[in-house]
Design a protein around this nucleic acid. Structure first.
Length: 906
DNA sequence: TGCGCAACCTAA
DNA sequence: TTAGTTAGGTTGCGCA
């Protein structure tokens, strides 16, 4: 039987541990496959006589099943040869963590390795199986080991198990749910007092013909057949769990279920059970009851055999939004409206027996529908499924965890193959030491931008810079020269240290990266070849997953909580990177310097015997660069077409790439017809990218206020318009006019008549830590406190808090207010703050390039005297701009070229 | 007025 | 038993 591995765990039996693989088969059946016979173990590094130690271990610990002497490399450093270590096999997986500390106290024992690998991961790694990978299993005649009912269509013990190559994804079943609770007096409901009154469920594919089902804990007349009514909350919840198990979903979803719905239901079940009701909350494929664990601030939910996917954290990490309420997310990402009953009105709606209760039911239904839509329409899981397949981690681990677990997984696999052991995760003490001992990790190089408006800038970037550096220079934990001296070449990074060359010993990490890169290239090739849309999507997710993994290794190496942490390695990578971008700039400015365009080809001067009058000579100069990118300004006497600039870009890319070791590669990315550099990491460009045979244009903004969530929408919108006018139309005058009209509008805001404007004046900031650990007061903290005063509950840490600044004499931070409250109470906002602090400074940073200043913009300012106010600000601005431009020689040419175009056409 | 600091968010 | 990294700009505030 073939099935895709969704989840894995193990159970203990009197014959030792038995692994359970849960999955979904090609034909659509859910599968639970038992695999006996795999044993837990760890490694031990000791000095002295290993035979004696081995005997001592077996005598001392009766949970040790056997001890073998195996040759292994230590985790870090180039080593000429392996050394004998002990492989300790225990009876039960839990024995490994139980005895690891005691084992360390035995004489001669130096270190223990791989003592904290979850048994299911150990199994998957050793058997070369992967999360979301397909396996073919031969069912055994043996009865499946059973600890009670398994909620799967097919349950069997496997004689043999092997991974198979298969691109498709099994027909997964999704269930999204959402609960409604009855708040007492309009405040936040708590399980101790507020019952669950409705449960809304959405299914994909449908459940008995229903896409949604709503369960209601009271009798209601006039409902449809997809609404079920119950006499009590307990009966309703029992039905929920019954449907849950009957439907047998692979993916359990909802919005904020991890932090709210799941704990709430679990708590309610306990409360109801304590009061004598009978609710069995069976949800696992092994019948496990619904439960959750609090780890620090976060709630972890796991359901054996299924994957719990809360849409909220996924959306938080994948989309940059001002707010992550379901209402806002639905509006921004699905363009659909969430329906709501205000908490204060809920009781009224609930107690109604007519239209309002029906409305309430429909609203509830909508919430689980939206969660399902988010998962399916935004394809939130595709990337995670691909990462699971590529890294080998179980899907739940990929969804919940970060990059560490995927890198761990890949490293464990390859270290194992190369007979190297891996240390356990560092304890807090070691982490503290690593953090303390910091000579520090230096990062990427950011080139000083040439500020102002530039034209014809070719943008190039390094393809996977850090991974390719690691490959090119064989940088790895396993190649760093520490204990043994190599007999052969070494590589000395600019940061210091020494690594053996690939000729001496190829590093494990470079090998992993190479195979990931190769797979990515292959996947992209397949993508181009296929015409099947589903296949294309799967391949696209796969290549993206490969890219994410490629880029995770560097960060891991400099992460103090990583199993393998090496400052020498991480610093080697970035130091090569810094040198590389500086060398690239020198090469382009220096020996390349000019490119000549002739007959749709690009040449260097030395490639041509003479310069023809029809040749276009393009002079190059690097005007900006950040870590792995270079922006090259192209100056020419004549206008150069996009295709011409494309040729220049490709010529530069090829030339620079040729000068670099494989597989480092500079790629031509795009062309900015106009580019405005404000500061490092802050710029806007009118960019043209290749699209089929032609070019596709757009405006790209980096780092400026338009893309920052702690600035108000009014600023973003105004700035975007200004950038568009300046970059696309070259029309500074219109930009100035636009800003003036906006400023005018703000001056005349009357909150009482125009409460919609509040939306545009709202800023948000993340409530990033407990209120007590803030050293300084913050505007969003002020609002958080006010909300707590008003409702009794503060917003949770991690939430983005919206606020506006209201009029008054007090300190800025104290005048932050909840926008909702401002709307309801018609509180006047601080018009001056919005003009002087929100609108004008960012605008001035842009228009200042053309000589426009505050006085030109805020012409209606009541404090005219503060600024050097001019009679004819608009003319002033433009004349200044013209002069500015004329002063710069690079732009002299562009002025000539474009003197008839809109830039100076006024 | 200038400076240092905390806090935020972004680029890569 | 959580969590890849550093570089960099901007703001508000308290203080010399």
């Amino acid at each position: 039987m073939n099935f895709q591995i969704l989840d894995a765990d193990y159970i203990g039996t009197h014959d030792g541990p038995v692994v359970r693989l849960f999955g979904r088969a090609e034909g659509g059946e859910s599968v639970c496959c038992f695999v006996p016979g795999f044993e837990p173990y760890f490694y031990l590094n000791a000095e002295g006589e290993l035979d004696k130690l081995s005997t001592m271990l077996r005598e001392r610990f009766d949970v040790i099943k056997k001890v073998d002497i195996v040759p292994k490399f230590e985790p870090v450093g180039y080593q000429v040869s392996k050394k004998p270590m002990l492989k300790v096999t225990t009876m039960e997986p839990r024995n490994v963590p139980e005895i690891r500390d005691d084992v360390l106290t035995l004489p001669g024992v130096k270190e223990v390795y791989e003592t904290d690998i979850l048994f299911r991961n150990r199994f998957l790694i050793d058997k070369d199986l992967h999360g979301m990978g397909w396996v073919t299993a031969t069912p055994s005649s043996n009865e499946p080991v059973s600890e009670g009912r398994i909620y799967c269509d097919s349950v069997f013990t496997a004689d043999s198990l092997e991974e198979i190559e298969k691109l498709s994804i099994a027909p997964l079943k999704y269930l999204a749910f959402d609960i409604e609770c009855l708040p007492i007096g309009g405040s936040m409901p708590v399980p101790e007092t507020s019952p669950v009154i409705m449960v809304s469920m959405s299914f994909s594919p449908a459940y008995n013909g229903h896409e949604t089902v709503v369960l209601v804990a009271k009798k209601v007349e006039g409902i449809g057949e997809d609404v079920e009514c119950f006499d009590s909350e307990a009966q309703m919840l029992s039905r929920f769990f019954e449907i849950f198990q009957e439907y047998d979903a692979d993916v359990i979803s909802g919005y904020n279920i991890n932090d709210f719905d799941v704990p709430y239901i679990a708590d309610r079940v306990n409360i109801l059970t304590d009061s004598g009701e009978n609710v069995r909350s069976s949800v696992g494929r092994d019948g496990r009851l619904l439960s959750y664990r609090k780890i620090g601030n976060r709630t972890m939910v796991s359901i054996p055999g299924r994957v719990v996917v809360d849409a909220l954290p996924l959306i938080r990490s994948q989309y940059s939004l001002k707010r992550y309420t379901l209402r806002n997310v639905a509006k921004e990402l699905l363009d659909s409206e969430k329906l709501d009953v205000a908490p204060s009105e809920m009781e009224e709606y609930w107690n109604d027996s007519g239209e309002r209760i029906l409305k309430f039911i429909d609203y509830a239904r909508r919430d689980s529908e939206l969660a399902m839509e988010l998962i399916l329409k935004l394809r939130l899981l595709d990337k995670h499924i691909a990462i699971s397949q590529v890294s080998g981690s179980i899907l739940q681990e990929v969804v919940d965890g970060g990059q560490t677990s995927m890198v761990d997984n890949l490293l464990l696999r390859e270290y194992g193959r190369a007979d190297r052991v891996i240390p356990p995760k560092p304890n807090d003490e070691l982490v503290a030491m690593r953090n303390r001992s910091s000579e520090g990790l230096k990062g990427g190089e950011v080139l000083e931008p040439k500020r102002g408006l530039l034209e014809d800038v070719v943008i190039l970037d390094y393809k996977s810079l850090y991974p390719t550096i690691m490959m090119a220079h064989n940088l790895c934990y396993t190649t760093v020269v520490e204990q043994d001296r190599p007999d052969g070449d070494t590589i000395k990074p600019p940061s210091g240290g020494e690594f053996v060359s690939a000729g001496v010993s190829k590093g494990i990490m470079p090998s992993i990266l190479e195979s990931l890169l190769q797979r990515r290239t292959e996947t992209k090739r397949k993508m181009k070849a296929t015409s099947d849309e589903t296949e294309h999507r799967v391949l696209d997710a796969t290549q993206l997953a490969l890219k994410i993994l490629l880029n995770s290794f560097y960060g891991y190496s400099g992460y103090t909580r990583a199993r393998l942490y090496s400052l020498a390695l991480a610093n080697a990578v970035t130091s090569f990177g810094r040198n590389n971008i500086l060398d690239t700039r020198a090469l382009i400015n220096g020996s390349i310097s000019k490119v000549i365009l002739r007959d749709d080809s690009a040449y260097f001067t030395e490639e041509l015997s003479s310069i023809d009058p029809n040749d276009e000579v393009v002079s190059l100069s690097v005007v900006y660069g950040d870590t792995d990118s270079v922006f090259v300004q192209c100056a020419s006497k004549k206008d150069v077409s996009l295709d011409g600039l494309g040729l220049v870009g490709s010529k530069i890319a090829a030339t620079v790439s040729d000068s670099l070791p494989d597989p480092m590669e500079l790629e031509f990315e795009s062309i900015a017809r106009r580019a405005l550099f404000i500061a490092k990491k802050r710029y806007a460009i009118w960019v043209f990218e290749r699209s089929g045979d032609g070019w596709e244009d757009g405006i790209k903004v980096k780092g400026m206020e338009t893309v920052r969530r702690d600035w108000c929408g009014l600023t973003s919108k105004t700035l975007n318009r200004v950038l568009e006018l300046v970059l696309k139309e070259g029309n500074v005058e219109s930009a100035v006019q636009h800003v003036r009209s906006v400023v005018d509008g703000v001056r005349n805001i009357d909150v009482r008549t125009d409460s919609a404007i509040i939306e545009d004046l709202t800023m948000t900031r993340m409530f990033s830590k407990k209120a007590t650990s803030y050293k300084n007061k913050q505007p969003h903290l002020t609002v958080a406190e006010k909300i707590e005063e008003r409702t009794g509950t503060p917003p949770p840490v991690g939430e983005r808090i919206p606020f506006v600044i209201v009029a008054g004499k007090d300190l800025f931070v104290n005048r932050a207010e909840d926008p909702e409250y401002v709307r309801e109470n018609n509180i006047p906002i601080d018009v001056d703050y919005y003009i002087k602090k929100q609108l004008l400074p960012p605008v001035e940073r842009i228009l200042g390039v053309f000589g426009v200043d505050m006085a030109n913009l805020d012409y209606d300012s009541k404090q005219k005297g503060l600024f050097d106010f001019s009679d004819k600000p608009q003319t002033n601005a433009v004349e200044f701009k013209k002069k500015e431009v004329d002063v710069q020689p690079q732009q002299q040419t562009s002025t000539d070229k474009k003197s008839q175009s809109s830039l100076f056409d006024f």
